[in-house]
Simulated assay, not measured.
Amino acid sequence: MKIDIVSVFPEYFEVLNLSLMGKAQDKGLLEITAHNLRDWTHDVHHSVDDTPVGGGAGMVMKPEVWAECLDELLGLGAPAQQESSAQAEAATMQPPATDAHGSAAAPVLIFPNPSAPLFTQRDATELSHAGHLLFGCGRYEGYDSRIPDYYRAQGIDVREYSIGDYVLNGGEVAVSVMLEAITRLMPGFMGNPDSIVEESYTGEGALLEHRQYTKPAVWRGLKVPDVLLSGDHGKVDRFRRDEALARTNDIRPDLIKALDCKALDKADRKTLMALGWEVSAAHPRKLS
């Protein structure tokens, strides 16, 4: 997977050379390049922002700087400068770049945005199959809203995601979060691929993961549940499944509501009923 990141602080992404992400680059699974947006400016101050149209606090990142950068990284030719807007709209774009094997890279352009839909495990799974991801990190009051609109009109797959109900100083942290979630799902990234199978939010009928323990069996007076020491794998699996259902019920009942009752086994139904759910319909319903 080819990953390009555009930021006014590209040095922030040196952290991606550590741990599993660094090993994935060494193995050739990932090719990550962080670019400085200011490299596409032409003024002495390398300005990337301007005052908001209509007034207001803060500064907004300028579309013309982003456009020069994105046109180059996406393999698009800049629209010809025409005297009329009609001619400008009719200007043709160069074909997209190809990957190392000569096939279309099919880039996905992603902007973190606190006003956008929430980034989920399902999004991470989908994007883990992409050949080329290009992330744009906003700063200040954000980027001009015409930027994603323009590139969608050029046929680019443009995504805007929020990582939670809070606001950050810039998109760099959000991009790092999304990259961790996406790349760890790539074949060959994790040393043991089975370690992601039962994680929270994973797969259809996603639940929060059960709690985890290691040795010693007793630590500072706190004991590992006896069933986990029993050696009975069936009982262990059932205990973990029941705990996942119980934790999800307590913390994220919305995930319980989304379960398909037809996919639940008899033991699942019994556990959910004990937790106060009615399971005879298409999806569980919380009893008052």
Rank of each mutant, 00 (worst) to 15 (best):
T248M: 03
A281C: 01
D250Q: 14
P187G: 05
A24I: 08
L30H: 07
I147W: 11
I3N: 07
S115T: 09
G75P: 07
L208E: 01
V236A: 09
P253W: 06
V175R: 05
D232N: 15
R252F: 04
A281T: 11
K223Y: 00
A244G: 08
P79S: 03
V167P: 01
D99C: 03
M59R: 08
E126N: 12
M61S: 05
I147G: 11
P193N: 11
G142K: 04
S85T: 09
H210Y: 15
S7N: 00
L255V: 07
T98F: 02
T214N: 03
D165Q: 11
Y166L: 07
M93F: 15
V158T: 05
H233L: 08
E141P: 03
M21N: 06
L76Y: 14
G77K: 11
W219L: 13
S103A: 13
N192E: 10
A24L: 10
V227A: 02
R139T: 11
S7K: 00
R122M: 03
L255N: 04
F119A: 02
A282E: 15
A104L: 14
E243Y: 07
V48M: 05
L29C: 08
I110N: 02
V44E: 15
G155C: 06
E141L: 07
A78V: 13
W40L: 06
R122Y: 00
S162F: 06
G28K: 13
M178Q: 05
A274N: 14
R211M: 05
D71C: 14
P117F: 00
E198D: 15
E141I: 07
R146P: 06
T41N: 06
A97V: 04
T51R: 14
A282Y: 09
A78H: 13
A130S: 14
E64G: 00
H283P: 09
R269K: 15
D149H: 14
E172S: 09
I110K: 01
A174V: 01
P112S: 10
D50M: 04
S47H: 07
V197L: 14
P284M: 07
L222T: 14
A86V: 11
E209S: 12
